[in-house]
Amino acid sequence: MRVAIIDYGSGNLRSATKAFERAAREAGIPAEIDLTDRAERVATADRIVLPGVGAYADCRRGLDAVPGMVEALRETVEKKARPFLGICVGMQLMSSRGLEKTVTEGLGWIEGDVVLMSPNDPTLKIPQIGWNTLDRKRAHPLFDGIPETLHAYFVHSYHLAAKKPEDVVATVDYGGPMTAFVARENKAGAQFHPEKSQTLGLSLITNFLRWNP
């Protein structure tokens, strides 16, 4: 099995790569973790991971700048229905549109816009930086065996306001519920950083490597 982590010039990919390698090794899953900026590697991968940090529009521009990458994503994720995991802005890109700085088209997999969080508690800071627990809205294979008490690491100012409640697997309380994890069919996305979330993160990555949607 080959897992493609898409490198499109967005941020810290070393820790994501290392976390996937470690999860595979510890779980005894024979997986090649392939950090790649080539569309043809993504088109033929068995699983796809789309990371992303920074602004929505910049990430979309970065993805579009890699020749054939968006087409390769659509081929593997939409047509071949290979398991997909978006992380942070990679998750946000699954939306219809991002409203950060400007209006940007997303990949359109999860209906809804990415909007600035407006906590109902004025003392809460933006961005949310740090560890918070998840409120699970429904069961999902990526959370199998993960206790609800565990924390996930968040760094974000915006969140995906999903139109369909069934797409939201977990929320995070930050002056009201903010979207923390979305999923539809073979596509899943975490607003938090699994690769930085120690126990919860490594378990979730292991579940992703075993996921057969």
Partner: peptide, 9 residues
């Protein structure tokens, strides 16, 4: 720097 890499980092 914030423009290039995002405020969060």
């Amino acid at each position: 720097a914030a423009d290039k890499f995002g405020n969060q980092c």
